[in-house]
Simulated assay, not measured.
Amino acid sequence: MSAPERTAGAGPLTALGLFSVLPVPAGARNPGPGVLRWLPVVGLVLGALACLPGLAVWRGAGEGSPLLAAALVVTALALLTRGLHLDATADLADGLGSGRPAEQALAIMRRPEVGAFAVAAVACTLLVQVAATATVLGQATPAEGVLAVVLATVTGRTAVLHAAARPAAPGSSLGVLVTGSGSPVARWAATAVLLAAAVAARLTVGGTTAEAMWSAAAVVVALLGAALLARHAARRLGGVNGDVFGAVVETASTATLVVLAAGVTWT
């Protein structure tokens, strides 16, 4: 066994170091098989941290600006992840939008240039995220607002566990990340825990049964939407890669917020 293999890690610190800007010990920077399974934990941490700047300008109950708070939350998430998932969304949009065969589409995704599809995808994603978050915060207490953001970030990363069950695209370097992440038991256990936590947490912070069901619906709709994206991307590209993963995170997170915003409107 080589030195890199001996020191490879697959714990939460390794996942935080790989998928965020948060500092971790040097020994936790070498990802090993199964590191993706900790992505929901990364989402929990990042969602909670991203809410801090928003709470500086919004306190719930009509105090402060929910729109400014939403913009700060979305900005904080982009900074905490180095814009990793937004960049992946842009690359995937250019690749799929090109309509080219898999090999050419993958080559387009690797280019540093940003095309029209990328600009539109990122702009729309950020716009919808801010608008949906502002809608939720406009009717929420601080606890409810934080819960909504955390639910979105955890759901986005749980969706990656399902996408990781697909084969890697040609030329993808995510082999070590995919290995050990495709266990059906682990995927569906994480999903079940997420659904139960979404309902229980909503009730705990004072939500009604109807509001708790909207939280569960947000998780289901987001995971389904992300699964459709991953399926389409895998069919077009011959498998999944890091760009697909990043786009899945943004898609599922955005869908979660949109359904939660719909719940505010209809309950």
Score class of each variant (00 low, 15 high):
153 T>L: 11
186 A>Y: 11
185 V>E: 15
229 L>F: 11
225 G>S: 08
139 Q>Y: 11
186 A>N: 13
186 A>E: 13
231 R>Y: 04
178 V>I: 15
242 G>H: 07
232 H>P: 00
198 A>N: 01
223 L>N: 00
174 L>W: 14
218 A>T: 01
245 F>Q: 03
232 H>N: 05
161 L>T: 07
198 A>Y: 00
222 A>F: 03
173 S>P: 06
221 V>Q: 04
221 V>L: 07
152 A>M: 02
174 L>E: 13
144 E>C: 11
244 V>N: 10
175 G>Q: 14
170 P>E: 04
221 V>W: 05
220 V>E: 00
182 G>Y: 12
148 A>F: 02
154 V>K: 00
164 A>G: 09
198 A>L: 02
237 L>K: 01
236 R>W: 10
202 R>D: 10
185 V>H: 14
213 M>F: 15
187 R>E: 03
205 V>T: 09
219 V>A: 04
217 A>H: 08
155 T>S: 15
189 A>F: 07
224 L>D: 02
230 A>E: 01
139 Q>C: 09
201 A>N: 06
180 G>L: 13
213 M>D: 06
192 A>C: 04
241 N>G: 10
218 A>D: 03
219 V>S: 03
138 G>M: 07
228 L>P: 01
147 L>C: 09
208 T>Q: 10
153 T>G: 07
157 R>Q: 06
159 A>Q: 05
159 A>P: 05
168 A>K: 08
220 V>N: 02
246 G>F: 07
247 A>C: 13
209 T>G: 15
154 V>G: 01
170 P>H: 05
160 V>Y: 13
144 E>I: 10
174 L>H: 12
229 L>Q: 00
155 T>R: 10
153 T>I: 04
140 A>Q: 06
163 A>K: 11
198 A>K: 01
148 A>Y: 01
212 A>G: 04
236 R>L: 13
176 V>S: 10
173 S>W: 12
210 A>T: 09
179 T>H: 14
215 S>M: 07
214 W>G: 11
218 A>W: 00
187 R>K: 05
234 A>H: 07
141 T>E: 05
224 L>W: 06
189 A>S: 14
187 R>C: 03
237 L>I: 04
206 G>M: 14
146 V>M: 14
225 G>F: 07
144 E>G: 13
147 L>K: 05
219 V>F: 06
195 L>E: 02
230 A>T: 00
163 A>R: 11
226 A>N: 00
217 A>S: 12
239 G>A: 13
177 L>M: 12
166 R>A: 15
207 G>N: 09
